[in-house]
């Protein structure tokens, strides 16, 4: 009972602990560029109360959502096809090997030359950041699908495309969603960095403008807000994920006595 309550409270305690260390650290350093945790937290409501700022943050989230969705629509089918076809895999694998280690935000200046500083460039960067882990995990998931499962489907009369959608996709879903979760975090990171490079609107824009103007409490308040968005998105996604793949989670009671 006690352990249960503690493990529920653990994340909260961890956050409070972090804020306490921050508070102590900034009091010790005592420089203007490192506000105390209390000052930063106090600046949060004024940002969230400001119409302009909220529009900026919603703009960021909109770009992120569109790019994330587009990336899934592109990456999942591609990864699954790579996992089931040696030909497709041997074509795309080298391309992925080259692009995987490139920091996507570093491409931002080049992409801006093509697409300008608007939404499209930023969304493309987010799209690239999300796509790679999702392709990789979909690929691994599809490759691991038990062949006999596909054979069973074929014997029931499922065609090859039907087997892809109705067997490979659900069988690989736990692995795909692991990739999506990584992709979601990367989406947030690339979202902020893209706005750092192409200042125009967005959460990153508020943060880096404040930094330029020396409004350090706003800078740290934005870091808190972005962090909280990350935690919120991840928790929401995790909830959705565990619902979708309940069938694959361990920890069921197995009635062993029954033959």
């Amino acid at each position: 009972m006690m352990a249960r309550v503690l493990s529920r409270l653990a994340p909260l305690l961890a956050c409070l602990g972090l804020l306490a260390i921050w508070q102590a650290g900034s009091l010790m350093l005592n420089t203007e560029s490192f506000p105390t945790a209390i000052e930063a937290v106090r600046a949060v409501p004024s940002i969230l109360g400001d119409r302009e700022s909220v529009i900026n943050i919603l703009d960021s989230l909109r770009r992120m959502a569109i790019a994330f969705a587009a990336a899934l629509l592109f990456a999942i089918p591609l990864g699954l096809m790579m996992g089931r076809s040696r030909l497709v895999a041997s074509f795309f694998n080298p391309l992925l090997m080259i692009t995987y280690p490139v920091p996507k935000a570093a491409l931002m200046p080049i992409i801006m030359l093509w697409l300008g500083v608007g939404d499209l460039a930023k969304m493309l960067v987010i799209f690239l950041g999300v796509s790679l882990p999702v392709i990789y995990h979909s690929f691994q998931g599809a490759k691991a699908v038990e062949e006999k499962m596909l054979w069973s489907g074929a014997a029931m009369g499922l065609s090859a495309p039907q087997r892809m959608i109705r067997i490979v996709l659900p069988a690989a879903l736990p692995e795909i969603l692991t990739g999506c979760r990584t992709g979601l975090v990367l989406a947030l990171i690339t979202m902020v960095t893209s706005e750092m490079i192409a200042r125009q609107s967005g959460a990153g824009n508020i943060l880096f403008n404040a930094l330029d103007m020396g409004q350090y409490d706003t800078v740290y308040a934005m870091i808190i807000i972005i962090g909280a968005m990350g935690i919120g998105l991840d928790a929401a996604f995790e909830k959705l994920r565990s619902r979708l793949v309940r069938w694959s989670e361990p920890g069921f009671d197995i009635p062993l006595s029954f033959a």
């Binding site: 038990e146 006999k148 499962m149 069973s152 067997i167 659900p170 069988a171 793949v245 069938w247 694959s248």
Partner: peptide, 9 residues
């Protein structure tokens, strides 16, 4: 099949 190959979902 020996491996059952049920659809786990």
């Amino acid at each position: 099949f020996q491996e059952f190959a049920l659809f786990p979902w």
